[in-house]
């Protein structure tokens, strides 16, 4: 569904991503793990058109989207839950969600939107409870759910999440990952960028390891989990101590 080839992205003269290639097939959960500053957020922002690549190709459903504006990319079915939630703080929860359905409204799918709204409330009951509360007053975890719900309201075929666990308490993180796994189970296609490598690899089918803007390793998620270098570098395991 998504094919990235030889993507080069730079901020001014500073090269951030180097000849990066990856792909996401329909129905997969793919995760990209890597340390801070490895370039993960840059990658997602480039795919959605918030940044322009210097060279390389991004193909979404066989169509080249590298030079399209963000709104066109979203209307083609590629949604992003951005880093740091980024909800519309001064608007209530319900309006945030309805704004997320902009592309659906444009397609004249009013009824679907309201059905989707109920579905999102079903996925995140707390959002229904706080339906009329201003989004800025929600807790971090609730805002994250709102951000995910907002992205889902667009009815995307591919949903990308940028560090959904960042800054959240461990219990909430569990919930968030359970929801991502649920999305995958329902047949959705997910690209998950995460610093919390362990949780991400546990729910993903495949993974890529990003280091300094380059992919250094890819493979089935269980293989990456078993890879001891990954364990040491990203899972924080003291592998030697465990084996004594």
């Amino acid at each position: 569904m998504l094919k990235v080839r030889n993507l080069d992205v730079a901020y001014g003269s500073l090269s951030v991503l180097h000849h990066l290639s990856l792909h996401v097939k329909q129905g997969e959960i793919v995760t990209i793990i890597g340390a801070n500053g490895a370039g993960k957020t840059t990658l997602l922002r480039t795919i959605t058109g918030l940044l322009r690549p210097r060279s390389g190709s991004i193909r979404f459903r066989e169509e080249e989207i590298g030079s399209l504006p963000t709104e066109n990319i979203v209307s083609r079915g590629c949604s992003l839950v951005p880093e740091g939630r980024q909800v519309f703080a001064a608007m209530p929860v319900r309006e945030n969600l309805l704004l997320g359905a902009y592309v659906q409204f444009k397609r004249g799918r009013r009824e679907e939107v309201h059905r989707d709204l109920e579905r999102i409330y079903g996925l995140f009951p707390v959002l229904k409870q706080r339906e009329h509360q201003l989004a800025g007053t929600l807790s971090g975890g609730e805002q994250q759910m709102l951000a995910i719900g907002r992205a889902l309201m667009a009815g995307p075929s591919l949903i990308m999440l940028d560090e959904p666990s960042m800054g959240l308490a461990p219990l909430i993180v569990k919930d968030i990952f359970a929801i991502v796994r649920q999305l995958g189970k329902e047949g959705g296609t997910v690209l998950l960028v995460e610093q919390n490598a362990r949780s991400a690899l546990r729910i993903a089918d495949r993974g890529y390891v990003l280091e300094n803007g380059r992919i250094v390793l890819e493979g089935a998620a269980e293989n990456l989990l078993a890879n001891r270098e990954i364990q040491r570098a990203y899972l924080g395991k003291d592998v030697d101590a465990e084996n004594k």
Binding site: L20, S21, V216
Partner: peptide, 20 residues
């Protein structure tokens, strides 16, 4: 076509790893 994409990705990551 999918194979080519996969080969390109794997070649790139192998070269990155090998260089390091």
């Amino acid at each position: 076509k999918d194979l080519e994409q996969l080969q390109l990705e794997r070649l790139e990551s192998t070269l990155n790893r090998v260089y390091l």
